[in-house]
Design a protein around this nucleic acid. Structure first.
Lengths: 122, 122
DNA sequence: CCTATACTTAGCCGAGTGGCAAAGTATTCA
DNA sequence: TGAATACTTTGCCACTCGGCTAAGTATAGG
């Protein structure tokens, strides 16, 4: 789960990409894309035991891709779409590099330290 | 590095997302986006030892994000952009699930607005 | 031929991931 | 009240990851 001190955006990328690197977690994201659901609902489509499944839920929550609330004995999960934007941002940045323009789009998308005159690669 | 038997696409997603979950590897991809480079060139921007760095190179190569060739005593690395398309594909799939029609990057990145009746949070 | 360069191989290590089973807690329902 | 439901906690385990050092191999250059 990557513990950076300064590079916030990089830490988020580590976390989010790491979260997406697992089929169970991607499946959860896919299901929550259709609307909120309880842990039990989500777990039903997975072959693993509940404690194991819960680890994935907590991982996703820690990373900020989902958030959960307890309602009675049920834990309801919902997607936090905006966290996925860092992926789009990174991809856009790469395309900007390929196309030789290291400027506006990238600046906009990775808006963590916008007052930093680009200079870090190599 | 996930070894699936049937689910090819899922395995690729595991691998590619896994590859992107590391800052050293993302940095390599970023550098190679500007053109091919030797292992030494790439490693120079990283604080780690060469053997450690090489592991990342081999990881990226195994996943299909880069390919390398040996020229004399130098190993030249180059980016395989098309492998990154699986990420685009997955994101598009998610967007299709929760928005149904939006596919413009800028709009997605900026879309923290919720004019969609299906979601109450965010 | 000798040396510097550019990896490469081998082996070790601590931390983290991803899974399990068993037992516990808190609600809900009859 | 008592039982079923829906997690939750605890503890264990195998394996991978990401880093290291040390030593080896293969060119390139002088």
């Amino acid at each position: 789960m990557a513990k950076y001190s300064g590079a916030l955006e990089a830490a988020r990328l580590d976390d989010v990409f790491g979260a997406l690197a697992d089929p169970t977690r991607r499946s959860v994201i896919g299901q929550l894309g259709r609307g909120p659901a309880s842990v039990g609902d989500l777990a039903r489509s997975s072959p693993m035991t509940l404690p194991s499944f819960m680890k994935h839920i907590r991982y996703l929550e820690a990373v900020g891709l989902i958030h959960t609330t307890k309602e009675g004995r049920v834990r309801r999960c919902a997607l936090d779409r905006e966290r996925l934007a860092v992926v789009d941002g990174w991809l856009a940045e790469q395309r900007a590099i390929w196309e030789g323009r290291t400027d506006r789009l990238e600046q906009f998308v990775t808006s963590t330290d916008a007052n930093d005159p680009r200079q870090e690669h190599v």
